[in-house]
Design a protein around this nucleic acid. Structure first.
Lengths: 215, 215
DNA sequence: CTGGGCGCTATTGTATACAAAAGATGCTGG
DNA sequence: CCAGCATCTTTTGTATACAATAGCGCCCAG
């Protein structure tokens, strides 16, 4: 809880962008945001730099920031990068995970299975579990750099929109792939784990594509 | 040249870290750095946030920043990530490059060949050309996200230290691999280009390992 | 001599004031 | 009526002032 104002500013401005309240091209003016969030320009500036680094915002030639426009190709590229990087994380995790870590992973996937087993699947529960599952893998990969790179790449809102269109068989397939991944990790087979993770995320990419408006 | 003070601060502090003047574990105190660079704390803070995001600095539990310690494994991980990401960039570039881009690439590699052909190889010229060559590929990949991720991963000093140990055959091999890459791109074969680039960087990794003290 | 608590200091987080630069607006001359 | 320019406004960049907090050392009691 070191710099709460800046963190709050980051979360709020990011929320504005992802919710669509600030649509692509909207200028992100520091003073206006400071008024909205209720802090001074200093933490706002810090938040904006982070958002710029994560490409949520882009700079006009003269240094003004505007909300970035992500088209389908941009999002596809994000999925492709995530697939590579999380695949790498899975490969590393396979040779580094302790039995205790693996148990935690198993418990997490059990929660996911319970969330989707109900008559009316619990999408929020699925998403929370899914995120935790992936975070456990990343953590077990023991690469701070990988974790940093992935943090700006795992934007729930798009995953969320995709997931709300999942039917039960999609959800079950996802949990099943998690099971495969745990098998690969149990076997300490990094390349198997990489392949499963890559496939897992690339499937999500195509689910997204299928659900997206044009193209 | 929008915010020159912050950029200067970034460059100077980064220089302190990479030159070894600020050794791992050294605290990075804002006021002290402000005095050194000759600007106020505000741009220094901005520079430090960037350095933190790129893992040149890490935060102690209580929010203080210290120079990060990179061991051999960290550097190896950076090479591995670079190999994946630049491989991806090469694959994208292969289907996107215009003949003009390719011509520029060829000219660049010709300069590299000239630099290493001299009786006493021009290492600085090699490094400058090499960097430009890789930047051209990244640019042609037309992925802002990829460019952003790679920018924090291409730290000359380590590459430089490795390159100073190259003998002529290493340098020639590097230029030759660039030639292969251009062939793959000319053929518009993304997977070929990816493989060549990945191999190119992984060879550099092993050159680094061979040159590094322990392990 | 040692351990714990208390207060001081060093350092970062946040707010605000000031400077510079880019954009917009309106005026004037053609 | 339009082009060009001057000025005024808006917005960002930088400096500084103030607040909060964590670390450190010192002193005292046992």
């Amino acid at each position: 809880m070191t710099n709460s104002a800046a963190d709050r500013a980051y979360a709020e401005v990011r929320g504005l962008i992802l919710s669509g309240d600030a649509s692509p091209g909207t200028p992100l003016r520091e003073e206006a945001l400071a008024d909205i969030v209720g802090v001074s320009r200093t933490p706002i500036r810090e938040a904006l730099r982070r958002l710029e680094a994560e490409l949520y915002a882009v700079r006009t030639p003269s240094g003004r920031l505007v909300v970035a426009a992500w088209d389908v190709d941009d999002v596809a590229e994000m999925f492709a990068l995530r697939a590579m990087l999380e695949g790498h994380a899975a490969a590393r995790a396979a040779t580094r995970m302790t039995p205790a870590d693996l148990g935690e992973l198993k418990a997490c996937n059990t929660r996911i299975e319970r969330a989707i087993a109900a008559p009316e699947p619990d999408i929020a529960g699925f998403l929370a579990g899914n995120r935790q599952f992936h975070d456990l893998i990343i953590k077990a990969s023991a690469s701070a750099r990988l974790a940093t790179m992935l943090s700006g790449l795992v934007e729930q809102p798009i995953v969320r929109r995709t997931a709300t269109r999942y039917d039960r068989s999609d959800l079950e397939r996802s949990a099943h792939e998690h099971g495969q991944l745990m098998q690969a990790i149990s076997a300490r087979d990094g390349e198997w784990a990489r392949s499963v993770m890559t496939a897992h995320i690339r499937r999500a990419l195509h689910a997204f594509r299928a659900a997206s408006p044009s193209k």
